[in-house]
């Protein structure tokens, strides 16, 4: 029943990434909706607020995109980010290290957790869901142990070492440095995923791990690298989180990984692996933060934000299934 011309159209839509387009469309519709109905949503400060809330989710989502494309999942990113930020805070407040070292500590702690995830998954062949669920708890506990369950404060703009906020969050003039870092990291990750061996193997492992193995790809090595990258991203997210929110409370961070995963899924990356894009994930991140700030501008409490985030995730997955079905029909 599918004639040549029609299948050509569908193929074109599929190639152009229907979901990415729809996600972008949804983002624009949401912006318009909130600009009309929200209180002062269409303003410079609301825009800056959306950026603020995007940084840490954005970094986590970028790392998560690689993991999910390989067909894996990293449930530990939220707590790993907080664990890093908490331990960095201890390095600053308790050990009195220079702030620059403390920021490096954040990234190192998070990258080590990524390495542990990767080794357990690739070398011991444990399921990613279980491994990262385990490291979620381990990082949650570890951060609190090191911090002795004390809240850690990073310096504020006007204090000594406040330069770290102007460098990573906003300049004194209000320029969003966080957005610059997110963009730079996004570009680097984009090049990694689309132009390098790592990117090609990431897709290959996710599409058909056995085939990739037979074709001589060292699956274990690349899987470890992908989880290390996810941990590293969570570490950078930790720096941006500390710069944006200053206060790191022990025993928090669980649940934040779901925002990153939701953003990736909304952006059209398939949880089955092999399919996905970073552009989509970034759009997914902004859909969630626009939704959050938009609902706040309409004076809707956070329970509504959580509720609608869930609705958006389900709609996105439905779309994904619909798209795959269409694509399958075209192939037939």
């Amino acid at each position: 029943m599918v004639n040549g011309e029609k299948s050509g159209v569908l193929e074109a839509i599929r190639r152009s990434g229907l979901q990415k387009l729809l996600a972008l469309g949804a983002l624009l519709i949401m912006c318009t909706f909130f600009s009309i109905f929200g209180q002062n949503f269409f303003s410079h400060s609301a825009f800056m607020n959306i950026l603020d809330a995007s940084y840490y989710i954005g970094f986590m989502a970028i790392g998560q995109t690689f993991v999910i494309i390989t067909g894996g999942i990293d449930l530990s990113v939220g707590t790993v980010m907080m664990s890093g930020a908490l331990i960095g805070g201890v390095a600053y407040n308790v050990w009195h290290w220079p702030i620059a070292f403390c920021l490096v500590v954040i990234v190192i702690v998070a990258t080590i957790f990524g390495l542990i995830n990767g080794l357990l998954i690739a070398k011991l062949h444990l399921p990613p869901f279980i491994v990262t669920l385990g490291t979620q708890f381990i990082s949650l506990g570890f951060g609190s142990i090191v911090a002795e369950v004390q809240t850690q404060q990073y310096p504020t703009v006007n204090q000594a070492d406040g330069w770290f906020k102007t460098a990573f969050y906003r300049t004194q003039g209000g320029f969003p440095m966080g957005a610059v870092f997110l963009l730079l990291f996004f570009i680097a990750a984009y090049i990694l995923l689309t132009r390098t061996k790592l990117g090609r193997y990431t897709y290959a492992i996710g599409s058909n791990e056995e085939a990739a193995r037979i074709s001589g790809i060292n699956i274990d090595k690349w899987k470890v690298i992908v989880y290390v990258l996810s941990g590293f991203s969570a570490g950078l997210a930790g720096i941006l989180y500390a710069a944006t929110y200053t206060t790191i409370v022990p025993q928090t961070g669980n649940g934040l990984e779901l925002y990153a995963i939701a953003a990736v899924v909304i952006g059209g990356t398939s949880l089955a692996g092999g399919v996905g894009s970073l552009v989509g994930s970034l759009i997914g991140v902004f859909i969630m933060t626009v939704l959050k700030d938009g609902l706040m501008s309409m004076n809707m409490q956070s329970q509504w934000q959580i509720f609608f985030t869930g609705v958006v995730v389900i709609l996105a997955v439905l779309l994904d299934i619909y798209r795959s079905k269409k694509a399958a029909q075209v192939k037939n």
């Binding site: 002062n40 949503f41 303003s43 400060s45 609301a46 800056m48 607020n49 603020d52 809330a53 989180y241 944006t244 929110y245 206060t247 409370v249 959050k292 700030d293 706040m296 501008s297 956070s302």
Partner: peptide, 13 residues
């Protein structure tokens, strides 16, 4: 804490 920061941001807007 982060959620409250976002809320105060939204309110100032």
């Amino acid at each position: 804490v982060a959620q409250q920061v976002d809320m105060v941001n939204a309110d100032l807007a």
